[in-house]
């Protein structure tokens, strides 16, 4: 049921808490994540592995295996639908249609025993009700937009006959089949080599601009995100520690974690010097965090850090960070 369609917010996640029950206890994967994506925007989520970037995105599309997780708090609203309440059928009519998702591994993301054409026609026909011939024309267009020249021939091919970059371009093309309002791209280029990476991203962005599709771009690669996104969220151990326009966050990071990340970019080091890294590891998520999760690795940790800080304005426009240092400044 659409609630407020005048709102230009396409995806809104509010204070999401999610854990995965395991033998004796649970992994507290998402600890109070709030984020939104507006129409036509490209929004990035950055964070190291295990920071729950993907889980957040999968939860938003209800793609986590049923029964594997417990959602203890929070709301997810997508295009006016309450994602946590709508039926499976309603969810299916959103997915692949209004909202699409692409994943990290193009090698295995296609059915190995069906031709590319068969797989594309199926999704196109499912959502548009087009006849096979029309579906075929659309598939050809989509592939051509992804700079696949011999599209006709590619439709006859099986996934194992194609390269990773080719497959990812096919999957991106397919994701745009119904001109979705939102595309969730979960590390779409991580499995590809660097030269192909850039090309694929450029194609994806060009296509998104054409169809005014918003992109939620998930990556561990800060450099990539900084070139690609309008706004970013920095995640650490299941929480968002900083958010704001990409330029602001990168030029004036407010959270010690973001600061460390920016320092660790190879671009920001001088030749001959040791590359920066962040000492220590991500905290164990099997214990529910009561303190700032970055405390153990933080140079500025002090007494206040035994409590979880909340996101506050860092002083500049729309940039926010979750750190007690900012509270002190205020």
């Amino acid at each position: 049921m659409p609630i407020d369609m005048s709102d230009k917010t396409i995806l809104k996640i509010e204070d999401l808490h999610l854990n995965f029950p395991i033998y004796q206890g649970a992994v507290h994967a998402i600890n109070g994540v709030s984020l939104y994506v507006d129409e036509g925007e490209i929004v990035g989520i950055v964070g190291e592995s295990g920071s729950a970037k993907s889980v957040t995105a999968m939860a938003a599309l209800r793609l986590l295996p049923k029964g594997s997780f417990r959602l203890t708090n929070g709301n997810i609203t997508m295009l006016g639908h309450d994602i946590l309440k709508i039926s499976e059928a309603e969810m299916n009519s959103l997915r692949g249609n209004q909202v699409a998702m692409i994943f990290q591994e193009p090698q295995t993301a296609l059915n190995p025993t069906k031709t590319i054409g068969k797989q594309m026609f199926k999704v196109i026909q499912l959502h548009t009700g087009k006849k096979r011939k029309e579906a075929r024309n659309l598939a050809l267009c989509l592939l051509q937009d992804m700079r696949i020249n011999d599209a006709e021939e590619i439709l006859q091919r099986y996934p194992f006959e194609l390269s990773g970059g080719m497959r990812q371009r096919i999957l991106i093309g397919l994701a745009f089949a119904c001109s979705p309002r939102l595309l969730v791209a979960d590390e779409p280029t991580t499995a590809l080599d660097v030269t192909v990476q850039r090309q694929v991203l450029q194609l994806m962005r060009a296509k998104a601009r054409k169809t005014s599709t918003a992109i939620l771009f998930i990556s561990h690669d800060l450099a990539l995100v900084s070139q690609f996104c309008d706004r970013i969220y920095v995640m650490y151990a299941g929480s968002i520690v900083e958010e704001g326009p990409t330029k602001l966050v990168l030029s004036a990071p407010a959270h010690p974690y973001t600061q460390a990340l920016v320092r660790a970019l190879p671009e920001s080091s001088t030749k001959g010097q040791r590359l920066e890294s962040i000492p220590g590891t991500v905290p164990k998520l099997t214990i529910k965090q009561e303190a700032c999760s970055f405390r153990e690795r933080c140079d500025h940790a002090h007494d206040l850090c035994v409590k979880i800080p909340s996101l506050v304005m860092s002083g500049v426009k729309t940039q926010k960070a979750a750190c007690w240092l900012l509270e002190k400044v205020r």
Partner: peptide
């Protein structure tokens, strides 16, 4: 993974079981 792709593309659970997974 291709099952996840199918889900993300809005393919129904019935179709996922009988037309995607079962033949393979």
């Amino acid at each position: 993974d291709y099952i996840r792709t199918a889900r993300a593309n809005g393919v129904s659970e019935f179709s996922i079981v009988f037309t995607e997974a079962l033949p393979n």
